[in-house]
Design a binder for these strands. Structure first.
Lengths: 166, 166
DNA sequence: ATTCAATGGTTATAGTATACTATTACTGTT
DNA sequence: AACAGTAATAGTATACTATAACCATTGAAT
């Protein structure tokens, strides 16, 4: 990921080499888990890889269907446990409005993100816009509300689908 | 529903007369549906009333359980259909992160809201903060993203629970 | 009165998530 | 080697959330 402007995520380019995305995500995860002394087991790593199949959030049961093809006896808890671990480590995010999961673009440190989700191509872009977080903090603060967790999800059309569609 | 400062919602006061909240919500709904020429049937009205049981979002199946006690043959579709109607009319909102529904504080016109949800007392406060919407619009706009729908939900502790708790 | 669309009843099923119990595998210790 | 402690996984069942599909009824407008 770049140097400046890190908070300004983008939708993946149309013809981008997605195998690179996957490989990078897995490398980063390996390094991160090693550093933290937590175990990115084969199963967890494979689930992470499946989540990274595309930039579109994927349902837990879609992960399960794929996992089942190679892993006898995979059951819902198999997947949910792995996803729970990956979420704790910040490696995947849950998209509440879709009941689905997406790989984290920048898992190095804890953060709150915002998501732009394209209703046409399904892809999700992760933002970390300080201005949004400031506005949220101000509003909550003025009511004396102590924020523990945020969900910010905007659904619509990404620039690319917007052009090709209408 | 004052005049100025309308966008600044509040958590309901501790000892507030909640029967008033319910009565007002139902009156508003009656008037609104009459004006729009849509039918707030007995069933829909009762579901709305059940959603307004408290300021905490309520699950569809909780609504169903209560409805069943007085309405033979109530089934999931009974409730979901009513909730769909109420949502279309802006009378209730869905809280994505809870899979639950809450009465709209100000249903007169379409709007996008933000929610503060207390993890202790369960209550949800609905905000309509232009600053938040501006920040979201700017961020999405800078990526060429066309926003159709927003989910903004902050979970944490309301001022009251914050004091009594810690 | 007739008709057509909206509403609701009924049954079945899809989709999402967790509780609970048991087992395995890896640690360090004796 | 035997053991205990812990983390991870397996396996089963069930809870919870939501929709599909089909039919009967209602009710408002012509």
């Amino acid at each position: 990921m770049g140097k400046g402007n890190d908070h300004k995520a983008r939708f993946a380019e149309d013809g981008h080499d997605h195998r690179r995305c996957i490989a990078e995500a897995l490398e980063t995860a390996d390094a991160l888990c090693a550093r933290r002394g937590v175990r990115l087991t084969k199963l967890r790593r494979r689930v992470l890889e499946l989540v990274w199949t595309s930039h579109a959030p994927i349902g837990a049961y879609d992960v399960l269907r794929r996992l089942s093809q190679e892993h006898d006896g995979a059951a819902p808890p198999t997947v949910y446990r792995a996803l729970d671990f990956l979420r704790e480590q910040g490696l995947v995010h849950r998209i509440e409005s879709l009941n689905a999961f997406v790989g984290c673009a920048d898992p190095a440190e804890a953060h709150t993100s915002q998501f732009l989700i394209c209703q046409d191509c399904g892809a999700a872009a992760e933002l970390q816009d300080p201005a949004i977080n400031r506005a949220l903090a101000r509003s909550a603060g003025s009511l004396g509300f102590l924020v523990k967790d945020k969900t910010v999800e905007l659904r619509g059309l990404c620039a690319h689908c917007r052009e090709s569609g209408a």
